[in-house]
């Protein structure tokens, strides 16, 4: 299979200190790939190597089978939003996009103007197009950076925390835009974020990076299924019965971790069918049993905790 982004045995050392330990992952066309990990895990370094800004110590990082550092024509096919916005504060939103459009080879004035206007409208900044970027809020700058990354219709997008500092409405707008780009226009997206809800919503595949090593690499749904112990919430008719049930289940070893909810419910980790059998056997009345879905955030935290 032909991959858009290929990372093979990638290692990176800074002054003899290894920060990436043989990373290997591939991103298919149209996929939204999430690169997750705590601060200092090596996400930005990995992206910088793929973008050709840093040289790998060993291994390779290719986009369309080539190194971006050596191919300027391929750099026309990518769009980036890095940690910093990369915008000129003294220029207006329109002028910023116009400049980047020229850099990406949009030389026709009418076509360029159309593209710039469309991009500004897409991120909801058309009304403030003549305002200097220096007066923009962080969220507005982030949206403008996204517009800049999309101005030349890239085939691959590298987005390093694109929703950082955005309000909920803008976050949703960006998330919907990314999903649309991936599904309808088959844009391949490499995405980093600390917002696990967002990653779960938009990413198809994720790699969890801890201390420069990949500790999990899978489709989001598979990862959730693989790493989730069954979480069940059981509600009882009274708080007293809930306490009795808790003591009983704890003795049997079903309760790994628990919390009470409205004093009548307990949350246990075990297999629901066995649990119900056990409770029925000792005549503990159960009002309701709910199998809780594990979130990516919980799975991620457990993976990171396990690793450290």
């Amino acid at each position: 299979m032909k991959y858009v982004v290929e990372v093979e045995n990638l290692t990176k050392e800074f002054n003899g200190r290894r920060v990436l330990h043989g990373l290997t992952f591939h991103v298919k066309s149209g996929e939204v790939f999430g690169l997750l990990g705590p601060n200092g895990a090596g996400k930005t370094t990995t992206i910088r190597i793929i973008l050709g800004l840093l040289r790998p110590t060993s291994g390779k990082a290719l986009v369309f089978g080539q190194q971006l550092a050596k191919r300027r024509d391929l750099r026309r096919k990518i769009g980036v939003v890095l940690e910093s916005d990369g915008l000129f504060r003294r220029l207006s939103a329109y002028e910023n996009l116009e400049f980047y459009a020229k850099i990406y080879g949009l030389n026709n004035n009418i076509e360029r103007d159309k593209k710039v206007r469309e991009a500004l409208e897409l991120v909801g900044l058309y009304e403030v197009r003549n305002m200097k970027v220096g007066y923009f809020s962080k969220g507005m700058r982030r949206r403008l950076a996204l517009a800049r990354a999309l101005i030349h219709n890239p085939e691959v997008l590298f987005l390093d925390e694109p929703t950082l500092g955005l309000d909920v409405e803008s976050q949703t707008m960006v998330q919907d835009l990314i999903t649309k780009l991936s599904r309808k226009e088959n844009v391949t997206i490499l995405y980093t974020s600390h917002n696990m809800y967002e990653v779960e919503k938009i990413c198809t595949k994720v790699a969890v990076l801890v201390k420069g090593k990949i500790i999990a690499l899978d489709r989001v749904d598979t990862l959730l299924a693989k790493n989730s112990k069954c979480v069940v919430e059981i509600c009882f008719p009274s708080a007293n019965e809930a306490l009795n049930a808790y003591e009983y289940l704890r003795k049997l070893g079903y309760v790994v971790n628990w919390k009470t909810k409205e004093e009548k419910c307990i949350v246990v980790f075990s297999e629901p069918s066995k649990l119900i059998k056990e409770l029925t056997r000792v005549d503990i009345r159960v009002e309701e049993v709910k199998k809780l879905r594990r979130t990516l955030e919980e799975t991620y935290l457990e993976l990171v905790r396990r690793c450290s």
Partner: peptide, 11 residues
Amino acid sequence: EGVLETLLCTP
């Protein structure tokens, strides 16, 4: 301001 980093990702 990180503008240079972004510019180096362009052609």
